[in-house]
């Protein structure tokens, strides 16, 4: 139980996010109306994705420094959950955009960048499955993971700022979000980011643990 306190925290924070995100007072803004609440659910997917992919790339770098099966498993599973968050982020963003920007996909630079970023990560999974030798698979995919992460960050956070974007905080504006300044929204938004990210970490650890069990069973069969 002592080791699992953060799982309790995860559930508590998500419950808080769901309740506060739907019930707390929000600014009444034109076009956005009640949809501003989607900020507590859509945006944390991206924060969560970047954090999970960062954890993944750290494990990949550690793998290259000192190879071990465990580090490779951690890298791939954190990337898996990170990409899941990214897919959910794209879908929720399209739903939100339909009602605020008028269409699900407006070729907004950040939308396109997110799609490209995910494709780069799909290639990571395909690359892994294409390689037979486990050591070669782990090494090459660790290198590719570093490449994928270093592509993702500039296309998501730098390029959209150099042009005009529908996303707040872009188009030359360095702030993360136009609504970031409001303390009432922040009271929900920051816990929401922590909540969804921790949920992603929990999901990743479950996948890592089942994968380790599988590896053990495969080894003992031999």
């Amino acid at each position: 139980m002592a080791k699992n306190w953060w799982k309790v925290l995860t559930i508590a924070l998500v419950l808080y996010t769901l309740w506060a995100g739907l019930m707390f007072q929000v600014p009444r803004l034109a076009i956005l109306n009640e949809t501003i609440r989607a900020m507590h659910f859509h945006v944390p997917m991206w924060f969560g994705m970047v954090i999970l992919l960062l954890i993944s790339v750290v494990y990949s770098i550690r793998y290259l420094a000192k190879p071990s099966d465990d580090l490779d498993t951690r890298a791939i599973e954190f990337a898996n959950t990170g990409v899941l968050f990214g897919i959910l982020g794209i879908i929720t963003g399209m739903a939100w955009a339909t009602f605020t920007w008028g269409e699900p996909w407006s070729n907004d630079p950040k939308q396109n960048a997110a799609a490209i970023g995910l494709l780069v990560y799909f290639a990571y999974f395909i690359l892994r499955n294409a390689l037979e030798d486990p050591q070669q698979k782990a090494r090459i995919s660790a290198i590719y993971n570093i490449f994928a992460f270093s592509v993702l960050i500039p296309i998501l956070f730098i390029l959209p700022r150099l042009t005009d974007s529908l996303h707040p905080g872009n188009g030359g504006n360095p702030g993360f979000n136009a609504y970031d300044l409001d303390s009432k929204l922040r009271l929900v938004f920051y816990p929401a980011v922590i909540a969804w990210t921790l949920l992603g970490v929990w999901m990743s650890t479950l996948r890592i643990r089942t994968k380790n069990l599988q590896t053990f069973l495969n080894d003992s069969e031999k």
């Binding site: 929000v26 009444r28 009640e34 030359g172 504006n173 970031d180």
Partner: peptide, 21 residues
């Protein structure tokens, strides 16, 4: 550049012109 940010004021919370639930 941060000056261009759209700030939210107290009036945004009481703006009855905007339709909400």
């Amino acid at each position: 550049i941060g000056q261009e940010k759209q700030t939210i004021t107290a009036t945004d919370y009481s703006n009855q012109q905007i339709e909400m639930a």
